[in-house]
Design a protein around this nucleic acid. Sequence first.
DNA 1: ACCGTCCCTGAATCATTGG
DNA 2: TCCAATGATTCAGGGACGG
Lengths: 399, 399
Amino acid sequence: METNKIIHGNCVEKLNDISSHQIDLVYFDPPFFTQKKHTLSSRDNSKVYEFDDKYDSIDEYLQLIENTLIQCKRLLKDSGSVFLHCDKTASHNIRIILDKVFGKENFQSEIIWSYKRWSNAKKGLLNSHQIIFFYSKTDQFKFNTIYTDYSATTNLDQILQDRERNENGKSIYKRDDEGNVIIGKGKKGVPLSDVWEIPYLNPKAKERSGYPTQKPVLLLNQIINISTNEGDIVLDPFCGSGTTCVSAKLLKRKYIGIDVSIDAVNLAYSRLEEMVITESNLLKKGMDVYLEKTEKELAILSNLNAFPVQRNSGIDGFLKEHYEGKPVPVKIQGEYETVEDAIEKIEKASIGKSYAMKIVIQTRVSKTSRLFDFQTDVVIIKSLELQIKEEFSRCYRNI
Amino acid sequence: METNKIIHGNCVEKLNDISSHQIDLVYFDPPFFTQKKHTLSSRDNSKVYEFDDKYDSIDEYLQLIENTLIQCKRLLKDSGSVFLHCDKTASHNIRIILDKVFGKENFQSEIIWSYKRWSNAKKGLLNSHQIIFFYSKTDQFKFNTIYTDYSATTNLDQILQDRERNENGKSIYKRDDEGNVIIGKGKKGVPLSDVWEIPYLNPKAKERSGYPTQKPVLLLNQIINISTNEGDIVLDPFCGSGTTCVSAKLLKRKYIGIDVSIDAVNLAYSRLEEMVITESNLLKKGMDVYLEKTEKELAILSNLNAFPVQRNSGIDGFLKEHYEGKPVPVKIQGEYETVEDAIEKIEKASIGKSYAMKIVIQTRVSKTSRLFDFQTDVVIIKSLELQIKEEFSRCYRNI
DNA sequence: ACCGTCCCTGAATCATTGG
DNA sequence: TCCAATGATTCAGGGACGG
């Protein structure tokens, strides 16, 4: 079969041309039934991409999904799977179609793709997840278990301990004759869960092509990795900007994409040529790198009723309450700083900003003092620990 | 209406006895249609709890859900909401019932409760989430937005600045005539998202009562906090071990629980009872196990380099460092105490102990003062928040 | 009721500066 | 020249507003 191509046309029709039992994975990412037209322009504004997600009725929409799914099932090998990406708008209706076409017994997982995104003024909770239904064609489906690191919150000791069941069927730690817990053999890690926290494709990322609803390559990598091996064939009947094909190429799988929009097809081809993939800094480095405050500093900020600021060496946080209608920056004297250093830093970070008050938390006794060549109106407050220390020495003197 | 009780019986029948438009929140946690009998024994194995989640057909199950939901809708105030807790087994079917009973337009959120879990040997992804559907009765529903911390990748000091669009429509920082950046209005934090990562059971807490499918108190706290105010009435028609009632009581809401199992009703009552004991005599379990309210106090103690103690109403912690070879007790002025109350309490708790220093952290401005009929040498230190408050008012006076 | 348009937000990148 | 620090920018999806 001819692979590694993007087909332009209506997917139900075009799928007809493909012969059965050839495909290992279908990534099925239809419009979400938002009843909106989605528009976005490319980075240099040279091109406007749009697609229409408006239907006369939910039934018309579901009919499209069902017809396409029936075709996809035909094309799948017995070891194949489908991953259907949708959001809360129509997920319940879609799953009923999936149960109908693939059978309840082939439902494998409801994957939650969870991410952080800029907020808005919505009354209620901020949407920050989408849903991916994982159905297999048969129970002989291909699956590569991925093991992840133990989460930092997990008690590692407990994982490494062997367990057994007591006479009441409760799971307990296995102990030797002397009552000591037995340390089990090394374990591989935790199998991948069905909640995936993968960064949303950031508006600034180079990977962004300008096509609306573009999915991150990292998400597709995960799907392709768990459900296929090298050389397998991946089909995306609503391929849009071609993320699935990019990911498939990257992971040495074959791919077939289909889209009704010729703009999408052209874009997908050019992305396959360029292969621009943003290596998420966040994923690479981990959130920990950004969390630069010590426990102590965070405790002080929480005491002040302030929220922390991570990327400014002159400001550690801002009070939640304003003063004269303006935010109040706070700097905590660092371990290798004098109070004067701290004052200088917060003043520097405040240049050009008309703060009405600035606060420095003094954490250590001053030994030296120096004169400033600038005027300052910083308020200095001593940390509780420092006050206690002073109290200690004051009392000693009294003896 | 009579509240704060657990009713034993079939919930459809028992809901009939309650009059309409009284309830602010329904937490609806039916069996998940697992088609299994769930059994679990209590911590000391003295009691085996079980409940039956087997039905002749999905339709029988859904009919039960629908009948109960119709009753619940009748009981809700117009400002009320229902949170229906289920898992992937039947979530799609249940949501169709919810759409039918409450209307599509009153669907607010699909909340994902995600948690870490022991791995199992199943082929495929590890299930580690459950679903909570949030529907309101009308669009006038009550909602308290909770604000969470900003992401560590956010440059908060930057986004505090006002922005405007330049002639090319680009977003730029707003500046005044002198070229200084204009500081915008205050930030409250990021609105709570619809993905909640809450541990299955609080590892610190000996929360588990042994009842199958018991939900963590923190999960219920979150639901109750966003959808009700103090004094509101919470209804749980499938209350099981009574977590909803425990949480409601903790957060000063009224509650009504219903369960068919008399064992469940008794267990719920005893959990509620135990709370009273915990509260009044501060025996066994520390309150921080149940509440995040004391987080502020924990932060103060950490600031003081002190460790917390749980079971003493006159002493909140001890400094890690000793003074004159003796431990130094610390008491934090509580929300409903004057400084004098706090001093009296710590003195009382110190009788017969030869502490060389005692510390009270003052958290609020004193309004009244009274004379003591005893001598005191307590050291009073003002909390950082209080010092800031004083600084605010001092500066105002200077104007 | 239903458009279209503008404004606001903040996560996470890219771009530039500074040492 | 390179890396760290910090300054600048993007845009989905709400609400508000005007027609």
